[in-house]
Amino acid sequence: MNSFSYNKAHDVAEAVADIQEHEGARFIAGGTNLLDLMKENVMKPAHLTDINRLDLADIKENEEGGLTLGALVTNADTAWNERVEQRYPLLSKAILAGASPQLRNMATNGGNLFQRTRCYYFYDTATACNKREPGSGCSAINGINRIHAILGTSEHCIATHPSDMCVALAALDAKVNVTGPNGDRTVEFGDFHRLPGNTPHLDNNISQGELVTSIDLPPSNFTKNVFYLKVRDRQSYAFALVSVAAALDLEGDVIKDIRVAMGGVAHKPWRRREVEESYIGKVASTENFRALAETMLTGAVGFGGNTFKIELAKRAIVRALNEALKSGENL
């Protein structure tokens, strides 16, 4: 672990200013990932700006008619929030599929977006990793890659984004509000995270000095037929091999709208709106779900240890959509 300086910011302006003043500084909120990475010498921030005191811990109604989730609301408080449960059950389910109660009590919504990959090589400084040390190479491509990406990979990195919450946020068309030295901006969730390309050290499109203040959820009709399926090597406290956030808006058995986002398969939550759109107006059936799944996995490439994920992901999509279909019946 490195030596670092530390400051507790009292408001957003101070936080943003503080991080500008220190080279290699990071924000810290719950610290559930950052502290681990520091102890393993994977991240060595010279300065930490603690944002836990900022006034960003509320869930509020927004102008659009949706909810705005404060960046410092914990994952647990978000998942168990009555309005979230009723209006965005997909998000609740996704959050509760992640980590453990202890971690969800500490982890914040803003921090969740900045989780780093769980690639073994990223965590081990004795090995090459382009994400940790640009230009050193990717060990996973020819190494142990059971948990790695099958979509949107590059020759430089096949890491996945580990979040469950983000998969649901992607499916729900969330927007992320950011404050930085140049003022405020809003980022579409689909544009928040990046694919590795030749800059795998960059996880997202947020620059060093910017602070996520909240997440906007637009009004949603996906309140009944939703399901979050997390396929993993044990029943709890494991990252997804494949996860699927599935949501259906139905008229009879006809699809009025549909959302399918996948986790554990790419460097960011994987969603393709054009595929979803092509199923609007079609019947919600296993056959159509399978056809959709095939299209969703177009271009998937395996690296040996993770090749099974291609077929597994298709099956998971079908299952998740069928469960979403069923979950509506139970209401």
Binding site: Y120, Y123, T127, S139, I144, Y237
Partner: peptide, 15 residues
């Protein structure tokens, strides 16, 4: 899980 490129066990944490 041993990575034979490195001769090293890679999943060396309880996660």
């Amino acid at each position: 899980k041993m990575d034979h490129q490195y001769g090293r066990f890679m999943n060396h944490n309880l996660s």
